[in-house]
Amino acid sequence: MRNTYLWLLQLITGILIAVLLGVHMVLMHLDAILGFFGVDATKITSWESMIERSNQGIWAGLYIALLAVVLYHALNGLRNVILELTPSVRTERVVTRVIVAFGIVTFVFCSYVPIALLSA
């Protein structure tokens, strides 16, 4: 059932991306929408506001979660495309290992920023 779980995770991460990226987009880029609901979003993109949010665990957690789901969704999709276009058992093994390694390295490298900012 390995591939069934991988596909289920692909679906779940797709939904999570829509939610987490939605939160990020509304906060950072769609201040007009927040203004419509009576929220003053002009300060949200300021440096002080960003540092203040970074000190809160929930925001760091949200960004790390967004990074994880985007990485899984994108890299699993890329793996499926590559395996379909180059079907062979050897390619499968190499592609899977390279993509898993790339995903882990990228996750560790990129999640360092919100973790470091927590203690800033």
Binding site: R2, N3, T4, N80, L83, P87, E92
Partner: peptide, 9 residues
């Protein structure tokens, strides 16, 4: 059928 070239493709 639950393989890399099975039903999920």
């Amino acid at each position: 059928v639950d393989t890399d070239h099975g039903v999920w493709h």
